[in-house]
Amino acid sequence: MFLTRYFSEIAEAVGSLLKGMRMTGYYFTHHKEIITQQYPDNRATLVLPERFRGEVVMTHTDNNEHRCTGCTACELACPNGTIKVVTKFEVNAEGKKKKAVDKFVYHLELCTMCNLCIEACPTDAIRMAQTFEHSVYDRSQLTRILNKPDSKLQEGVE
């Protein structure tokens, strides 16, 4: 029937509108739900969400060892050409020549924090850090070398 459809449409519309108004009304009265961060004021107590991605860093142990084998999987995975892995050949204890990472160059100014390099890494050498205050006066300062000087490959990582 036309009339029943007409009125049921109205009832449905009013119901859904009221539902929306209830939601916004809830937020209006519950100020603890506010998610705005007063950023520069609360720098000391700022808590970032767990999955926030600020920049790519390489984890180093206390003995200045990292887990990067220089396989360049991250370099291949990066859509922007952010990462450039410079490799060298090292002679290990058995006298064998082996590929190792010389410089892990990371261009922060090109990075979109897409997380693809971290997923591509077979040895979990790199991860995303939560630092986000990256402003500098010169663009060249954004090009970083992630492996610390004289760092070694961790034992047992192939």
């Binding site: 937020y27 209006f28 100020h31 998610i35």
Partner: peptide, 13 residues
């Protein structure tokens, strides 16, 4: 202010 509170924001402060 009303818009801010309804959108879980703080508004002008």
């Amino acid at each position: 202010k009303v818009s801010a509170f309804m959108q879980i924001r703080l508004g002008p402060n």
